[in-house]
Design a protein around this nucleic acid. Structure first.
Length: 863
RNA sequence: GCGGGUAUGGCGGAAUUGGUAGACGCGCCUGACUCAAAAUCAGGUUCCUCUGGAGUGGGGGUUCGAGUCCCUCUACCCGCACCA
């Protein structure tokens, strides 16, 4: 080993151990092992070609778990792959003329290289790449099975259409009603889209959240709200023409407040409701109104400020409980087609939106619920003349047979009545909608369908799978290149052999990530997506780790897929992820020049609180998530080159708890680097110490060190189990400090020092695997630390024989006493009262009361 | 608007079931070594009117005792967003 003066050579050491692990296949799953399994998975990355700090944090967290569980005797599976379909590849093609496939595969090669130096305990033999036919062919088959099982269907649905890019945009790609790339006004278009019936499992997906006890509460709540279950009723209103004659049609509305039906003063339908379209055919003003609604639609900010607008159709709806009464039917911009039946009844007295609408269009406001304990007439008078709806619980009034019932009872009674009249039915409505998976893109998995004029949408026969993407495509024009490919889409119908065309849409890229965790269990089987026995052996994932940005969509889609795959016979499982952890973002200060331009951290010179750039003052902004657009990124490559993987890993694990945001600082990474060097020096000093046998009796100065070592083993184990990596680092550093300060030239000194350093190496191994291997080896251990069992502790050595107890007077600390752990209450009281400051506080008077909690505290209540 | 979360030194953050607030680290200060610097080592570092007092976003409460429990207010962050 090197002399103490020499700094730790991370370059040599890290490369050496990475090579050693690779040559020994240290991280390959042990086939046929009798050990219990443990599946650790981090969300697989999109191969952007650039490793960023978010990756470093994500994969380091997973690696700590994987290495720790391995040491704890588990047969660990820790695989890696590439979420390789997606829009950036097409953007690269547009901007630089590179083929998306070539670009993606190059990026994968680059990123695989970048992952190497991090020293991750990955089983690369299981690597999967989602853009390759050997992966996506299975999801084509799966989709056809879903179709057979009624879990996939084709439907016309409204989408955000960018007329310049010729493509559908996701809601988040529409900014202020304009396409994020083109800046063109986004249109609402009706397109034929393939959908997956996630709503089929709405109830089960909701109920099962309860059982996901190793998921963050936050994520469970978000999924709960996203599914959005509400109980209510569907109510049918017979429609009446303007001339008063029955139209012979029914309008179905959904409501959660059937108890307020007697307060109805209008009905409203969505601009996209079929009835609206019918009526607009010979009503140009209505047609214009509907067109207007389509424009302002989607952007979130626009919705917030949008004014409620309605168009009176002239039709009227007959009240289900009172055939003599009719209310006007409006087309309204605030009614959503995608929720319920796309139509509502308005009760302004007890719904804020309805109130706003009623006041604008001078519709009557009728109070039908009054709070308990208030005078109904006075309350009604106030409500009916005001602008604030009453939405809380109360008692029904002005409501015929419902009068006197509280809201819940009135709801039940109203539903019962509706059902007996045949004009409604109690139902459960979910906010969750089916998942539209069609994308007008090239770089995605082709949807295996052929459209035939006589046979309709025909599944591609199994023998013709996979439908592979053609490589010879051009990106010189906007739109989907598959659409204009000269030959690819022209095929003959599998059913009738007439000329037909392929579906040119591809799957949403969330499709690939919805089942990859299962593919990892048997990544090389060719005839099926995965081997069921292997999948059932490894799933569910024991610990899944990723960003909170996927708290809803990806995790919900995966839960759906697992159920759908089970129903189609692929496996027998509901929940794919038993444990979930969402990590925080990696942040950095932001810098702007006088002209407002963002500046890179490297370009800025800091002077304490202030900073300059080329001598000009710089505005130091708050810390934000590292992003290219704000230029506040730090290149992991540079950090790895300068300080090595262990220092980078240690830093991202120190200080901040992993679920919180991490502030990247130069000082922080330097601190981690300093610690590793210090540890290295301490270990170098131990190298010359003979491996003394542990004496039976230790010097009194050394005995507490032994106990601290045992305590640290216990504490770090618990910290790692509970994702308190920052706390584990603190415990290990504490022990390191003790070892650096301890006396070694006493009985047992050398033995304990060695024991301490070996323990530190073992405990820190999951966090900084390279330096710990090196220290372990230097201390004369033959075996590879990565393949060595976690240290155990002696419970008898966790506590000292004496304990220091706080002594308070009136709840304020006045001193401490150190006593034997076995000391009784009387002894504690005597010792406490003997303290000088305590006597001073008491001023000679006897204490009024003394509270004694042995092992914890003595509190003296003075008179 | 609805739902959820957070608030502790100059900074990141620790604190079992209510029981010595500020572990560990960063930064800073002093000293040693050095021609000097870096690195390293030793010591210090919540604040103040300092034999004492105050202190965990503000105010109130429960308790012998509150960062921790209850009420209330404020600020910030996240999710959803006309879901009837």
């Amino acid at each position: 080993m090197a002399s103490p003066e020499e700094r730790y050579n991370f370059r040599e050491t890290e490369a050496k151990w990475q090579k050693t692990w690779a040559s020994r296949d240290s991280f390959k799953v042990e086939e046929g092992s009798s050990k219990p399994k443990y599946y650790v998975l981090e969300m697989f990355p999109y191969p952007s070609g650039r490793l960023h700090m978010g990756h470093v944090r994500n994969y380091t967290l997973g690696d700590v778990v994987a290495r720790y569980k391995k040491a704890r005797g588990f047969n660990v599976m820790h695989p890696m792959g590439w979420d390789a379909f997606g829009l950036p590849a097409e953007n690269a093609a547009l901007e630089r003329g590179v083929h998306p496939g070539k670009w993606t595969r190059q990026n994968i090669a680059i990123m695989r290289e970048q992952f190497g130096p991090l020293g991750l305990s990955l089983d690369w033999s299981r690597e999967i790449t989602s853009c390759e036919p050997d992966y996506y062919k299975h999801e084509q088959k799966m989709f056809l099975d879903f179709l057979k099982a009624g879990l996939a269907y084709r439907k016309e649905s409204w989408v955000n259409w960018d007329p310049v890019e010729h493509t559908v945009l996701a809601n988040e790609q529409v900014i202020d009603g304009k396409g994020w790339r083109s800046g063109a006004d986004v249109e609402q278009r009706k397109l034929n889209q393939w959908n997956l019936k996630i709503t089929h499992y709405a109830e089960d997906l909701l109920k099962s959240i309860e059982g996901l006890d190793r998921w963050p509460d936050k994520v469970r709540l978000m999924q709960h709200n996203w599914i959005g279950r509400s109980e209510g009723a569907r109510v049918t209103w017979p429609l009446v023409n303007a001339d008063g004659k029955d139209r012979g049609e029914m309008l179905e509305v959904f409501t959660t407040r059937p108890d307020t039906l007697f307060g109805a003063s209008f009905c409203a339908i969505s601009a996209q409701h079929p009835l609206a379209a019918t009526l607009a055919e010979n009503n140009p003003a209505l047609a214009d109104f509907i067109a207007d609604c389509g424009k302002s639609g989607t952007s979130t900010a626009a919705i917030e400020t949008a004014e409620k607008k309605g168009f009176d159709t002239g039709l009227r709806a007959r009240h289900p409980f009172d055939p003599a009464k009719t209310v006007p039917v409006y087309v309204a911009n605030f009614v959503l087609m995608a929720y319920g039946s796309g139509a509502i009844f308005g009760c302004p007295g007890h719904d804020e939106r309805d109130m706003e609408f009623a006041r604008k269009y001078h519709l009557p406001v009728r109070c039908v619920v009054a709070p308990v304990g208030e005078d109904p007439e006075a309350f009604a008078a106030k409500l009916e003349s005001g602008t604030i709806a009453f939405t809380d619980d109360g008692v029904a009034i002005n409501s015929d047979f419902l009068n006197g019932l509280k809201v819940d009872a009135a709801k039940r009674a109203a539903v019962e009545k509706l059902e007996s009249l045949g004009l409604g039915k109690g139902t459960v409505q979910y906010r969750l909608r089916d998942w539209g998976v069609s994308r007008q893109r090239y770089w995605g998995c082709p949807i295996p369908i052929i459209h035939c004029e006589s046979c309709g949408a025909v599944p591609v026969p199994d023998k013709d799978l996979p439908v592979t993407l053609p490589e010879d495509v051009t990106f010189d024009k906007p739109g989907n290149p598959l659409e204009r490919h000269p030959t690819w889409k022209h095929v003959s119908c599998p059913a009738c052999a007439k000329p037909a065309v392929r579906e040119t849409d591809t799957f949403d890229t969330f499709f690939e990530s919805s089942w990859y965790f299962a593919r990892f269990c048997s990544p090389h089987v060719a005839d099926r997506p995965f081997n069921e026995v292997e999948a059932m052996k490894w799933l569910p994932v024991d610990q899944y780790i990723g960003g909170v940005e996927h708290a809803v969509l990806h995790l919900l889609y995966s839960r759906f897929f697992t159920r759908a795959m089970s129903d189609c016979g692929y496996l027998n499982l509901k929940e794919p992820f038993a444990g979930m952890f969402t990590q925080g973002m990696v942040c950095h200060e932001t810098y702007r020049a006088a002209d407002g331009a963002w500046l890179e951290p490297g370009a800025v010179t800091k002077h304490g609180e202030t900073a300059t750039y080329n001598g000009q003052p710089v505005t130091v902004g708050r810390s934000e998530k590292m992003s290219k657009s704000k230029k506040n990124t730090v290149d992991p490559q540079h950090i790895l080159d300068t300080f090595g993987a262990d220092a980078a890993r240690l830093f991202v694990l120190s200080d901040s708890p992993p679920d919180r945001d991490l502030e990247w600082t130069d000082a922080g990474i330097e601190g981690a680097w300093r610690y590793l060097n210090r540890l290295w020096r301490l270990a170098s000093a131990a190298e010359d110490i003979p491996g003394d046998a542990m004496p039976a009796v230790l010097d009194p100065s050394v005995e507490p060190v032994r106990r601290q070592i045992h305590r640290t083993i216990a504490a770090v184990g618990e910290d790692l189990e509970k994702f308190r990596f920052n706390s584990a680092v603190a415990r290990i550093r504490e022990l390191t400090n003790t070892l650096a300060d301890m006396k070694r030239d006493v009985i047992g000194g050398n033995a304990i020092y060695r024991f301490g350093l070996e323990t530190v190496a073992q405990l820190i191994n999951p966090l900084t695997p390279h330096i710990s291997e090196e220290i372990w080896q230097a201390l004369g251990n033959g075996a590879i630390l990565t393949e060595t069992a976690w240290p155990s502790f002696d419970p008898a050595l966790l506590e000292d024989d004496t304990v220091t107890i706080a002594v308070q007077v009136n709840g304020k600390l006045r001193g401490t006493i150190t006593v034997a752990k076995t000391a009784d209450k009387a002894a504690l009281e005597t010792a406490a009262l003997a303290l000088q400051p305590v006597q001073k506080q008491l001023e000679g008077k006897a204490p009024k009361k003394v509270i004694i909690v042995p092992g914890k505290i003595v509190n003296i209540v003075a008179g």
